[in-house]
Design a protein around this nucleic acid. Structure first.
Lengths: 232, 232
DNA sequence: GCAAAAGTGTTAAAGCTACACCCATGT
DNA sequence: ACATGGGTGTAGCTTTAACACTTTTGC
């Protein structure tokens, strides 16, 4: 194999922001580092891109390694490329965020990485430029969720409209009007009534819906404007 | 300087999609390659990331090299990382798009790179995954321009509302209603009446506006919904 | 005077906002 | 019975969509 006459080959890392939702708060899966560098500090989960590994393959590998899950929803946020961002050696970091259902992951895998679910509100200082990465990922999540039915990735298979509302309220950190929210969501026709009701509720039981996957995939790239002022 | 015990250092390129607008069509600045590999074929302008160069610095360097312009508006689109995307050697490509006023660039710089303005409608097949890059950049441009006052970057300092409309019609490849478009744009309060009129017009002369920079910067991250059905 | 481009006006329909009211369940 | 949470209704307002009409300029 020939090469380019160019000597500047660079170490490439991937860092992932894993978002979860516990019914009340948006949480991040963060690593309490028990390895160097920056041992003892908090960071995102990361890994290096291997020589013969496609970028998406590496992303899936790192996510599987951390959570034991495959086919996780993720999207790239940005590549961070300041020369001095990693003091050990110049490392490019391709940053992405993933959305997972917080009740379905491999707890042992998470423990093995010394990872913890931390509420966005309590997030600690992270190493390097990881704070910036989280800020940007959150912005991107808000942006995306306002227009696309992306939030469903954070909920269980079957969910109620009030649960979905709590998720949106957590994402945008703002209370929303119950009645307008409900109508807006129903009007998208993305939900299927499962005929079941949420038995956990202490009062009136809410209808459990599932996502109309067919419509979801077909309409995913259409704009929905989930967040209008009437919901705030 | 210590290093990570990791041998997979990878060549990193930057590829840029330069958009321009000539008053009628959206154009791309493309290179007719007079160098290897793929000599004679069309490609995006690119370059390699240097060992001690921040990523944004490299982006600005490549854009300056091609157009002779500084402070160009650009944003990252995505990093392309298939192992086999470049047949010469594995190369990661960080892809971004830039918007420039097509009437203000260094023609000699462009000639030196054997670059040409090609209308989107006539775009040739490009090398490697560059076609995909253009597709994605165009999608991102459409996405962004629907919500943010980004289009102004493609116009001269002073412009008329009909010119702005032609730009939006070119971006979305769809005719829009003159009257609704005008009202929508005016309602953003982003335009300043310069008091001048466009002397080029053969008929009634349109008012020349300039961008209210202060308001533009302040409102840039607010959502504007420039594109609603009423404009189509 | 006429054609073409630019600017302003209007009206019906749709969607948004901010509410009130009713229903189901556990205590 | 009542507190709580969930579902449905509605009036007033704003915005959108789809039009018509008037003004300015060159020929």
């Amino acid at each position: 194999m020939t090469n380019y006459p160019h000597t500047n080959r660079i170490l490439v890392a991937l860092d992932c922001i894993v978002f979860g939702f516990d019914g009340e708060d948006i949480k991040l899966l963060l690593i309490k580092r028990n390895f160097d560098p920056e041992r003892g500090k908090w960071s995102l989960m990361g890994g290096f891109l291997e020589a013969n590994e496609d970028l998406e393959v590496a992303t899936n590998r790192i996510l599987f390694d951390l959570t034991g899950l495959k086919d996780i929803y993720f999207e790239e946020v940005q590549t961070f490329g300041k020369v001095a961002r990693d003091p050990v050696e110049r490392t490019l970091s391709i940053c992405f965020f993933a959305l997972i259902n917080i009740h379905e992951y491999d707890q042992e895998a998470v423990r093995n990485h010394n990872a913890n679910w931390i509420s966005l509100k309590d997030r600690p200082q992270l190493i390097f430029d990881h704070n910036q990465m989280v800020d940007l990922a959150l912005e991107r999540l808000r942006y995306k969720a306002a227009l696309h039915p992306i939030g469903f990735e954070l909920l269980p298979e079957k969910f109620t409209i009030p649960q979905l509302q709590k998720l949106y309220e957590a994402i945008y950190d703002t209370p929303m009007d119950r009645r307008n929210f409900s109508r807006k969501i129903v009007s998208t026709n993305l939900l299927l009534d499962t005929g079941e009701k949420n038995q956990n509720s202490a009062t009136k039981r809410a209808i459990l819906y599932s996502l109309n996957k067919e419509k979801y995939l077909k309409q995913f790239n259409a704009f929905h404007y989930f967040i209008s002022d009437s919901m705030r």
